Computed example of a mutant assay.
Amino acid sequence: MIVLDHVSKFFSSKSGDIKAVTNVSLHVKQGEIHGVIGYSGAGKSTLIRCVNLLEQPTSGNVFIQGKESTFLSPDKLRSVRKNIGMIFQGFNLLKTASVYDNIAIPLKLLGLKKEDVHKRVEKYLDIVDLADKKNAYPNQLSGGQKQRVAIARALAQEPDILLSDEATSALDPETTDAILDLLLKINEEFGITILLITHEMNVIQKICDNVTVLEKGEVIEQGTAVQLFASPKNKTTQKFLNTISQRKLSSSLISQLNLNGTVVRLTFIGENTGEPLLAQLTKKFDVQPNILTANIIELKNDIIGNLVIHLTGDQEIIEQALQFLRKQNVGIERLEGN
């Protein structure tokens, strides 16, 4: 659906080229929600603007629905963009136009008949649950309602692809959850492919199928959401995960508990999260597990459980116990404390 092949984007300045995006490749499959996460300055916004070619890549190629789109003429590019909707962090609504007109005006510019414009506006206002606000103006709406109008405006063009540029970062947590639920509904009911950028790990957690992590304009990690949450390889990815679950024991806690022995993080995926494996461990082996931290992360399509435990006992028996857990498909990561 969307393929970026070694895409780079450099900007010229008096001090030299600024490398916003460097050699980025990603593949967004039809019907999936693909998240791109990174800190400020990672190149996320530049990358998403390369997808709809609001920014022309310095090098590399962009393919939309199997067609090379990087160097299209303006007329052909406009045709491609008709199939790509976009929602923004700042909503980008016309302040002097009603909710109805904010959705209708782009459709009129596309040349739709008046009756078709009306049908689409009514349809998509109903989908985003704002039918009663069609005569209101943006300054009469909450932030979440403004974003719903922006989503309805993007959907009204009936695209196959929806780009989301930090669409929830200006919203409070409760409103963010409501907008994410709406994006999930859109993806599931209409089969629209969604590529979103964010710096919020809870956004990735709730709705994404696959994830790309950016740092300083480069891809540092890619994989399914389950893979990244269960076994993050890069330190930046691990830092993002720390924002929603404690993955690192503080030195003060280690000192306070005087952890002599073996400290490990156990990761359980899917059905394993409900298995009493620690109980089995104490029955089968002469080891004493002490739970230090525990949490369950609910993803779009799976569940991941994390336990950090301190094991005491004979070291050889501890290794046998850990081998038993590995055979049950439990991820094991050794932490400080040995």
Rank of each mutant, 00 (worst) to 15 (best):
G191C: 05
F285D: 04
M1A: 10
K233V: 07
A97S: 10
E166P: 01
G35H: 02
H34E: 15
M1N: 06
I297W: 02
Q157A: 12
E275C: 09
Q315F: 08
R49N: 05
E336T: 13
S40I: 06
N290A: 14
A167E: 04
V226L: 15
G66W: 12
Q328T: 08
Q157C: 14
N258T: 06
F88M: 03
A154D: 11
V51F: 05
V308S: 15
K248T: 12
L259M: 12
S251A: 04
D17N: 10
N306A: 02
P173L: 01
I48Q: 06
I127T: 08
D116H: 10
N272W: 04
F190Y: 06
L110P: 09
T262C: 12
G261E: 00
I64Y: 04
F324C: 10
I84Y: 00
K29G: 06
I309G: 00
I309H: 01
S142W: 10
L93F: 06
S15A: 12
F63H: 01
P159I: 08
N61V: 14
I318N: 00
K283I: 04
I254Q: 09
G313E: 03
F285L: 03
A131K: 10
V264R: 00
G66T: 04
Q140L: 14
N329E: 02
S8A: 13
A178P: 15
T46F: 03
G85Y: 09
S251R: 05
Q320L: 10
Y137L: 05
F11S: 15
N202E: 15
A321N: 09
I309N: 00
S142N: 05
G144W: 05
G35F: 04
I64A: 03
V117Y: 02
A230H: 03
I87M: 13
I33M: 12
G191I: 02
S164F: 03
L214I: 05
E55P: 14
E158F: 08
R78E: 01
D116R: 08
Q147T: 10
E200F: 08
L163F: 03
G144P: 04
G35M: 11
V62H: 03
L307I: 07
E271D: 14
R153D: 03
S45G: 05
L130A: 00
K327H: 11
S245T: 11
K114F: 08
E189M: 03
T236F: 08
R265N: 10
Q222L: 01
F88I: 10
T243Q: 07
I269W: 02
L26P: 14
A104E: 04
E188A: 04
L257Q: 04
I269P: 02
D126M: 15
P173D: 07
